[in-house]
Amino acid sequence: MLHTVNKSPFASATLTQCLGHLTDGAAVLLIEDAVVGGVAGTAPGALLAECLKGHKVYCLGPDLMARGISEGRLVKGIQTVDYAGFVRLVTEHDAVQSWL
């Protein structure tokens, strides 16, 4: 299952709530304001580093760019995808759960 999160973890608990519901093979994709949580050296970044030990974590590149976050500032292991990559992730997983 692909889990998408779109709220900033500094404003909403959805990232934590999502991370509590990952099963084997589940992946996390950060989009919209949620991409700010991918920055290394932050509290949500630490949660994601922990998550990366068992799951893949992705960030939508255009949303990073829009917020002036360069890939180099992301927690190591988070993969950046473009819109085509977003679509590919959706097709690669059997279902998508959006943590609105």
Partner: peptide, 10 residues
Amino acid sequence: AAIMSQQDVV
């Protein structure tokens, strides 16, 4: 979490 992962559509 298991219930979610067993679905066709969420």
